[in-house]
Amino acid sequence: MSSEKTLMMKELPQTERPREKMLAKGAYSLSEAELLAILLRTGMKNMPVHRLAEYLLAKYDLSGLGSISPQELSKTLGIGLVKAVTVVAGIELGKRLSSKVPDVRPVIRSPKDAAELIMPNLRYEAKEHFIALLLSTKNQVIARSTISIGSLNASIVHPRELFREAITHSAASVILVHNHPSGDPTPSQEDIALTKKLIEAGLLLDISVLDHVIIGDGKYVSFKEKGII
């Protein structure tokens, strides 16, 4: 163990060190700063690791860390590229776990069900992700497919890309979902025009577009609930 790391660890009582605390009390007992400190492993000469973790959370907030790139994070004082990659990888694992479709296929009974299924993964993304929830005749989620990533427009989200996925999975219907990185889920005119175009294409293929849900920061807008479609 380096002298820097030894000094860092000695600053905290044994029972308050994040690793020891996790082993003794479980991961759920740790604060966000303590969990982040474990990923960081070491601090700097004048900033122990728990202070560095607190600094990062104050600077970016947990939601900000969920969308930052390793390159950007590595520019922060005390964060090299190796630490930045470790932190981003840890957060990405958490995001994937929270968005994983369980073995028992969820049933979408309302726009809220669709939003809650996708929101944990999309609310912190820095780019717009357009996702299709592919449903069975009983509204069970067969699969979810990412159709595009980037600015949402008709040239990127083409009906053939969406309905190719629906046909491949033998979906009876689809629910469209995408996020607004700004956090405001209010539909734009482009969102509305694209949705109507996809609905028309679905009618020709006898695959219903049931709804379009836009995800914001902890909130959503359903086109169906708003009477837009």
Rank of each mutant, 00 (worst) to 15 (best):
L162I: 14
H50R: 11
L133G: 01
I229T: 09
A201S: 15
D103A: 08
Y60D: 04
K21P: 07
K10G: 14
S173Q: 01
G216D: 11
S67K: 15
L65R: 12
S148V: 02
L23G: 13
E200I: 11
A58G: 14
E161C: 02
K25M: 12
E16S: 08
V209R: 02
E128P: 01
E125R: 15
G202K: 04
T76Y: 07
L77W: 06
K224T: 08
K75C: 02
P18Y: 11
V177R: 01
S99Q: 07
L122R: 01
D217Q: 08
I167Y: 01
S69D: 09
D184T: 00
E200Q: 15
D113G: 06
I91T: 05
L162Q: 04
P111A: 12
S222V: 03
H178Q: 05
L205T: 07
G227E: 11
S29T: 05
L30P: 01
L210H: 10
E190P: 00
N46Y: 11
D211Q: 12
L7Y: 11
K25D: 12
I131H: 01
Q14L: 15
T86H: 07
L198A: 05
L205K: 15
L81K: 10
S69F: 13
L135S: 04
A171P: 00
E34P: 04
K10T: 09
E116W: 11
A143R: 11
N179W: 04
A84W: 11
A89K: 12
G94N: 08
K197Q: 13
G26H: 10
M1E: 09
E125I: 03
D61I: 04
T186R: 00
I156Y: 14
V209T: 12
N139L: 06
M8I: 05
I228M: 05
L205P: 07
S151M: 07
S173K: 01
I142S: 00
N179S: 08
R105Q: 13
K224R: 15
L52K: 15
H212V: 03
A33S: 15
D61V: 04
E161T: 09
P48R: 03
A114W: 03
I131S: 01
Y60M: 07
G90T: 06
V141F: 08
E16G: 00
L7F: 09
L194D: 02
H50K: 09
T137V: 08
D113P: 02
L36V: 06
K10H: 12
G78D: 06
Y124F: 09
